[in-house]
Design a protein around this nucleic acid. Structure first.
Lengths: 209, 209
DNA sequence: TCACGTTTTAAACGGTCGTTTTAAACAATC
DNA sequence: GATTGTTTAAAACGACCGTTTAAAACGTGA
């Protein structure tokens, strides 16, 4: 087994388990057992559990932010005064890239769940890491939102966008629990795509009022 | 120190710590140290950590559901065809009861945070406990929502209300992190009440579209 | 093939966890 | 005031945690 194999398998297992259980509830032994590697491999390749958590986030956030930055530039080049809808479309398209399969949908779900953990379970080190590495892209995104709605105060923009993030993150974080509740309540299954198709107009109505 | 003192102080400390850190990150030693009681007191009075978690939820959910049930009955008696706004007002008023002080606002924040944990961190036992004890009130609430909007499918109702819950729960769960981010971004402080005053019209726009 | 740097392995470390045990302190009853 | 049931106290239990160690296995260029 090559080094790349070991590192990748640790990251894959850790990502799944963190998303499923959270950081504290996931032990290195669970991760290494699922990844079929030796327990010491995590400390050898990553240094510590904290570093592994950061690596898991870096693996999906770095390409995401790179792509988002590029897409924002494309948008700005094509449209000198992008509206709210344009900016959100860029975000949605960037997030949904490659989400046309069941595997892709699960990827998005994991992405959202990890994002939620970053807010609600963040040990200080993770928040510092995220701010240090991804704050620039975040700021740029917010700036376009402000430009699109100069009549709203920065605070109003901030909170509206985070209410929306909350609805997304919560829904996707608890998606399995919620689908089961929905099934019990209504007798019908709700596919993840059905849920998304309801979530987007819901948020649009709230953001654009 | 009377038994009531010990039990109450354990519940108080556990509630604060669970809301702040989550279940797994809060040890019985933290709880008993803060409560200034002996470590063994939790197992003696509650049986186990799981039972303590359930007791924390029961202490604030039982009176809440009792009150909500009563208020729903009052509403139904006064109005044979309550609208969405009526039903949500009942919920909001029930939740905001006694939230006119700083202490009250913190209580609400803790309430929301615990509710969020129930969805996202729930160990199976907690979800089973909540369903067993509080599902009836929940169902009744949902029924009024359905009656208010018979043109919407039960599934649409379910998801819209949970998107809204998500925005609330996420916001209140991460309120301190978010306020700090907002401060860093905009240079202004956002009081919790300011946030609520923005959240409510945000949700109203999304639910009533 | 040998030597050497890298990676994997098995075992152990110290520490914290939830829980249990045993005895002491307390409160209420007769 | 002795007795009985309840509550508190200190200490220990085994289990699991993240991490470290030291040796074995591996791969590669000389």
């Amino acid at each position: 087994m090559s080094q790349a194999d070991t590192v990748t398998r640790i990251l894959d297992s850790a990502e799944e388990l963190f998303a499923e259980k959270g950081f504290a509830e996931t032990s290195l032994r669970m991760i290494t057992t699922r990844a079929k590697v030796n327990l010491a491999a995590v400390n050898y390749h990553f240094g510590s559990k904290k570093d592994l958590i950061q690596a898991v986030f870096a693996r999906f956030l770095s390409p995401f932010c790179t792509k988002l930055d590029r897409e924002l530039s494309v948008m700005a080049a094509a449209n000198s005064e992008p509206g709210l809808r344009d900016v959100l479309d860029v975000l949605a398209r960037t997030m949904l890239t490659g989400v046309n399969s069941t595997a892709g949908t699960r990827k998005l779900s994991v992405f959202m769940r990890l994002l939620g953990l970053a807010y609600t379970q963040a040990q200080g080190h993770l928040r510092r890491f995220l701010k240090e590495n991804y704050h620039q892209t975040y700021s740029r995104f917010i700036l376009y939102l402000r430009a699109a709605h100069p009549e709203l105060s920065p605070r109003e923009i901030f909170w509206r966008i985070h209410f929306a993030i909350g609805a997304c993150v919560f829904t996707m974080s608890s998606i399995e629990v919620l689908r089961e509740m929905s099934r019990a309540d209504t007798g019908e299954d709700s596919g993840v795509e059905d849920v998304m198709n309801q979530l987007i107009p819901f948020l649009a109505a709230a953001l654009e009022r």
